[in-house]
């Protein structure tokens, strides 16, 4: 059994991560998902959320937004629309986005098709702020 997991994270714009890690926690479709070396092959969709990985005792946090996660032969491939590491997040922007989303939600009715869009934006902003607070110690 391999000791490490290979984590590959790709977005349409670039390869975000390609690293050997010890442990991964991801926001799976059916809830939080912990991955350790030797995991069975798995394919799942992911929700907006926070992906955490441990590397040599340090915890790293990444805000991810919609995607897929594939485990195969101790290689974890994460395909996401966006991925931001904790230290890359612009907290001011995230807060502004949160404010905008909240404002918009107050005025929109639930049936409005923009409602779902703004709700998703709100969720993303909340996650970003949450992750930004957890920079590597």
């Amino acid at each position: 059994m391999a000791e490490k997991l290979k984590l590959e994270m790709v977005t349409p714009y670039k390869r975000v991560l390609s690293q050997e890690v010890d442990e991964i926690t991801a926001p799976g479709y059916l809830g939080e998902l912990g991955l350790l070396p030797g995991h069975t092959p798995l394919l799942t969709t992911m929700k907006v959320g926070e992906l955490t990985y441990r590397q040599d005792g340090d915890l790293f946090h990444v805000a991810v937004n919609w995607g897929y996660l594939e485990v195969e032969n101790d290689t974890v491939t994460v395909l996401v629309d966006t991925a931001e590491k904790a230290d890359e997040i612009d907290l001011e922007r995230a807060k502004a986005a949160l404010g905008r989303a909240e404002e918009a939600l107050k005025t929109l009715s639930q049936e409005d098709k923009n409602f779902a869009v703004m709700e998703a934006a709100l969720e993303r902003a909340v996650i970003r702020i949450q992750v930004a607070g957890k920079k590597v110690r």
Partner: peptide, 12 residues
């Protein structure tokens, strides 16, 4: 490779 699918293969 025979995956476990979450939620189901069809939905993925």
């Amino acid at each position: 490779i025979d995956y476990i699918y979450e939620p189901t293969r069809g939905e993925v």
